[in-house]
Design a protein around this nucleic acid. Sequence first.
DNA 1: GAGCACTGC
Length: 666
Amino acid sequence: MSSHNNNNNYSSQQQESSSSLSSSEDVLLFNNLNQRSLSITQQRLALPVYQLRKHILHLLETKQTLVVVGHTGCGKTTQIPQYLYEAGWCDGGRCIAVTQPRRVAATSVAVRVAEEMGESTVGGKVGYTIRFDDQTTNTTAIKYMTDGMLLREMMVDPLLSRYPVVMIDEAHERSLSTDLVIGLLKKVMVRRPDLRVIVSSATLDAEDFCNYFNLNKDSNDKTKDTCAILSIEGRNYPVDLHYLEEPTANYVDTTVKTIVDIHLTQTPGDVLVFLTGQDEIETVRRQLIDRLSDDPTNQQHQYTIVPIYSGLPLEKQMKVFAPPNIHKRKIVLATNIAETSITIDGIVYVVDCGFVKIKSYSGRSGTDSLVVVPTSQASANQRAGRAGRNRSGKCYRLYTEAAFAKLDVHTIPEIQRSNLSSVVLQLKALGIDNILAFDFLSPPVADSLVRALELLYALGAIDDYAKLTSPIGMTMAELPTEPPFSKMILSAASDFGCSEECLSIVAMLTIPGIQYNQSLVRKQFGVKEGDHLTLLNIYNSYVDIKQKDQSGWCHDNGLNAKAMTRVLQGNNNNDTKKVDPSVLVRKAIVSGFFSNAARLLPDGSYQTIKDKRNLWIHPTSIIGTINSPEWVIFHDVIITTKEFMKELTVIEPNWLSEIAPHYYSK
DNA sequence: GAGCACTGC
């Protein structure tokens, strides 16, 4: 059976451990084709994109923007930059920038392309730049980078003068920073007619991108268009779509039934199931084990269930990459991580529950929360496509065909469902004064822009004329943290002399999954001032432990050792001076988070001071188990069964009028 | 007494 001849996949993925979690279609293509025996040149010539090489180069002579539509594995990410290089676009020490939404993709593609170009290492002719890791030199001609990194470069060099060409890869994902880069590039192109922009996107978006970048608005003469679309055939096999006849009232049950059915009636081939979250995955896993072991035929049908979601430790995530086995069906239960971030080989059957959990921002309350919503058509098609990578496959959509037709065509871009204070701050730092008039590809609702401006004003980052302040606003824009965090760090340094402590707290709040045993951690480290100082207590205790003992110490204290290592990496703070941080640190927190102040009500809930929202203490907070303070500052709100405040710190009410008098009048 | 999709500087 041809679909199972790819046992070499695993070994090649092991060799390139970083690429096994990569979304880079092109890198994975080489693994899939099992063409290691072919020379690199032969491999390059065999790629679908090669047929369009001359066409691409010709279009770039006449058009300023090129939208490239290419499915999984057509070779666009690795090949197009090389064609440009070979055609002389990098002559004279110039460099092509290629952006990726994720770090692993940027690094693994760079490694692959360096190899194709005969380089012994990455960082010469081909390099990459991601946060904390810049592998480029002044001879680098092709540079892969995260789009966030390109944004940072634009703050230093707004016209991107060293790049003749910028390629935005995976633009259809519409991440926050991709959208920002796109909006800024459109402005740059007016000032730099020589700049060429290549946008790689999915079919559904291509027209939108093209209309956006096309500067020929007045003439119907198509030859005057400044943007062209180019489609590259994919390497995907056909996928049979199966819909439900009738809608289901409980898609979790239907998911289980469908998987059992596939397992007992369909030919060998692995199954990939899309669910919305960790809990759902666990539920389905348990029910599946019950159902499948009840079945007397299961002796002939060996199976293994592998969950994957980002919260899972990396070693467990790696289990989905075990090579396909004809005698043992792999059933992968996944969140959206399998739709964009990782690609699993050997999938023949996809089960799509039809829902997704996404971030949603309420402009009115200014908080974001996670909600389960129906997927978009684009997302459903992406999921289905995962069944056709190695051979033809089947996709079971757990909704009716009529329901599919009614789904949104696209997922709402992140910029339209996010808190925009960081975005606005960055645009201000790039000299964009009138944010409301900025030509976004998908403009956010004006309300959330105004809300972001208000917060930045309250934090002192912009002045009465909405101009970036100096030095506060300028410095905040340079810090890679959310504006309230940035302000807290700045005040800690300038007013309260506790920057080490505050940096440690920010680092602890930024790394997810630090505590695996909540109650143990609380017992060991909890302090009455609240969660922020508890986190500081954990951090300081961790630093005091000798390095060789840290791992065991973490385990004994309910902490995730790997997560703690990452805290240290991001926090170059070797100073172990011991000041009593109790009041100073809490005041610094207030200077960033004063808008998140709340007061105790008689029923045990809290009310925010400014907009009178009713909130509850989240049960994971140290506050509430120790006492019920009258005044608190919270870091975050999570909306589940109630609206909960997470990460709380006890404050004195007069600190509010002392630190944020412009925001609170007594 | 609840439970966090996914990224990035």
